[in-house]
């Protein structure tokens, strides 16, 4: 089985702080990591490889520095790594990003494509399903369990608000995976050596992928960020020192004003 795992390098958003004076994000010194849901997705692929034998390719789109997460993925046990990096891809929204990645996937052999549910920098959860649509593949999102019959069908546990569903999906397919369900393995020493000595990271430009160039980058992006801002600090409301009866009156009128009662 050929499995392609799509991964993304993201700033560790738990480490991001806000400049209290300028009201902007402080990104300096914030570590870049493999997006947690994507790492869960890689673990799914490696578990299938352990059990059934599979060739696992990891791909990412980003700046040249994103090579770091591909090395990490190789050290965990992936077999091949491709970095798609090109100025033509800059400014892509989710649709343009999914077009680029689908374009890359069209040039590869795959039975299963795995992405994380969402990346912690954007939290959109859109690129996985959009890739599936571009490639005409079925998708299952919010994946928390995967069983394979060894032939053509995956049995999936999909989490939802009520609890979960069991779904069957025919391969080839796209899964978007939840990190907490799949604890990623550590890199091994031999894996790390392999990642640097044996494996090459393949660096691809936009000319190598199979997609109409008009669909890429800023030009291929239907959405535009009009403005971004940090959340305004909350201003304290009124404080009253009144009798209990008056207090009740104040509370009730506030609840009515906010349509709560």
């Amino acid at each position: 089985m050929n499995i392609v795992v799509c991964i993304k390098q993201v700033p560790d958003t738990t480490e991001i702080k806000i400049d209290p004076v300028k009201g902007t994000l402080i990104r300096d010194g914030v570590p870049s990591i493999m997006n947690p849901d994507d790492k869960g997705g890689l673990e799914v692929a490696l578990q299938l490889k352990d059990k059934f034998g599979a060739h696992v390719t990891v791909i990412t789109m980003g700046l040249p520095m994103a090579e770091a997460i591909l090395r990490e993925a190789l050290a965990m046990g992936a077999d091949r790594a491709i970095l798609l990096t090109d100025r033509k891809l800059a400014g892509a929204d989710t649709l343009a990003t999914s077009n680029a990645i689908a374009g890359l996937l069209r040039t590869l052999d795959y039975d299963l494509v795995i992405t994380g549910r969402q990346a912690i920098d954007g939290d959109t959860a859109q690129v996985g399903p959009q890739i599936a649509e571009h490639l005409g593949l079925p998708q299952v999102s919010y994946v928390a369990g995967v069983e394979y019959d060894g032939k053509n069908t995956l049995t999936i546990r999909k989490e939802d608000e009520d609890a979960y569903q069991i779904l069957e999906v025919e391969l080839p397919a796209v899964l978007t995976v939840l990190a907490p369900a799949f604890k990623p393995r550590y890199m091994t020493v031999s894996g790390i050596i392999n990642a640097y000595d044996t494996h090459e990271i393949e660096i691809w430009g936009a000319d190598k992928i199979d997609v109409d160039e008009k669909k890429l980058g800023l030009n291929g992006s239907p959405t535009r960020v009009k403005k971004s801002f940090t959340k305004p600090q909350k201003v304290a409301g009124e404080v009253y020192e009144v009798t209990p009866e008056e207090a009740v009156g104040l509370i009730v009128s506030k609840l009515k004003e906010k349509f709560i009662i």
Partner: peptide, 22 residues
């Protein structure tokens, strides 16, 4: 929801239009 966030992106790609999440 888990439904809207599964359906929305699939449709946005089919309709070739933008989708803003959450």
């Amino acid at each position: 929801t888990t439904i809207g966030r599964d359906l929305g992106p699939r449709l946005s790609a089919r309709l070739t239009t933008g989708l803003t999440a959450d």
